[in-house]
């Protein structure tokens, strides 16, 4: 039993961290007009480095590593606020792989095809109403719920209408899923529980967002001076930062645990995936909010990067079902072992 990364796993973390630091610094989101998925240009490079098929078995064209490595990588995607379209592409490749469509699988693993993410609008729209994230140039759209995961062609959606996104760097559309349309490929929960994996990975992604906000606040508290001292020397600020670290630690431990029970195919896999999403999304939202507060008026501006963390944390919370839905769900599981 060991919750810490092995040296091989740490090497993977170092590789993706270096790559994203160079290719996708959070400052990229500040470029004027950087709306739309500019991160898609990273996909072929990430694909070449093997990150898209990390946890797929080798006979399915993947690298054959476990959910633990995938969790560690998604943590870094969250830390660098990589477009959530990454869920569409990586989980989409998994859908294609398990549905037996090797051609589509390989196209997705190469990073050439784009996949958007559909998310139910829930009570706001009715059962067939969705938000499409980063789907304007996507050929396929991932739709993943409790029963199955599927890739639909964009043409399966009707009434597509571009709307302003709260997370302004993302392309957001409203759409309805047409009547009696069939997905290009689908995988039932019984074949492969991609929904549980989506929740687990969203926990990892949200963990990364919260850690990014924590580090940004700590860095600022070390250099910003008032009353002749760095503000981080005052307990009023120091304790806010400490609370951010506590939340991130809880989210990190649960994300690690959730990935490991998934690898063991434990009956508690869904329970721990849901718990991870709950704990991590709370850590992301609260850390981002605290990060605004530590930055004062500067934190309220569009010039600081803080607002990107806050807005992305809410996207992470809403995708695949928000806090209210996950709380309802977690009470439905039997007592975990």
């Amino acid at each position: 039993m060991d919750l810490l990364p092995s040296s091989d796993q740490q090497q993977i973390v170092d590789t993706i961290q270096d790559f994203l630091r160079n290719e996708a610094p959070v400052d990229r989101l500040r470029e004027f007009g950087a709306i739309g998925n500019s991160d898609a240009k990273l996909w072929p490079k990430l694909a070449e480095l093997g990150f898209f098929g990390l946890s797929l078995p080798e006979e399915m064209g993947g690298i054959g590593l476990s959910a633990a490595e995938e969790m560690l990588v998604f943590q870094q995607f969250g830390y660098h606020l990589i477009s959530p379209a990454i869920f569409g592409t990586i989980l989409g490749a998994r859908v294609a792989a398990f549905s037996g469509d090797a051609h589509l699988r390989d196209a997705l693993l190469s990073g050439e095809a784009r996949v958007g993410v559909a998310n139910s609008r829930g009570a706001a729209g009715g059962t067939d109403a969705f938000h499409l994230f980063e789907a304007d140039e996507a050929e396929l759209i991932l739709l993943c719920d409790d029963d199955e995961a599927a890739l639909y062609p964009r043409s399966a959606f009707t009434h597509i209408e571009r709307v302003n996104s709260t997370d302004a760097v993302l392309v957001l559309e409203r759409a309805r899923l047409g009547d009696s349309v069939e997905p290009r490929v689908r995988v039932s929960k019984e074949t492969e529980n991609i929904h549980a994996r989506a929740l687990m990975l969203m926990g990892a992604y949200a963990l990364g967002i919260g850690q990014g906000a924590r580090d940004m606040a700590v860095e600022y508290a070390q250099v910003r001076e008032q009353f002749g001292k760095p503000i981080g020397s005052f307990q009023a600020i120091k304790h806010i930062c400490a609370d951010m670290a506590i939340r991130s630690e809880a989210a990190l431990c649960q994300a690690s645990f959730a990935a490991l029970v998934m690898d063991d195919a434990s009956p508690d896999t869904e329970f721990h995936a849901v718990a991870s999403k709950i704990v991590a999304c709370e850590s992301a939202i609260k850390n981002a909010a605290d990060c605004v507060q530590v930055h004062g008026a500067f934190g309220f501006t569009a010039e600081a990067n803080v607002h990107h963390y806050l807005k992305r944390s809410h996207v992470a919370d809403r995708l695949f079902g928000g806090l209210r839905e996950q709380r309802r769900r977690i009470l439905t599981f039997p007592t975990p072992a």
């Binding site: 039993m1 809880a250 431990c253 645990f257 709380r327 977690i330």
Partner: peptide, 24 residues
Amino acid sequence: GARLAQLRADMAAARAMTYMAVSR
């Protein structure tokens, strides 16, 4: 229900933290 659900998730995390404490 909301409080129980949140605690169920938080206790899972607390237990994972003990595993991490031993690992560390």
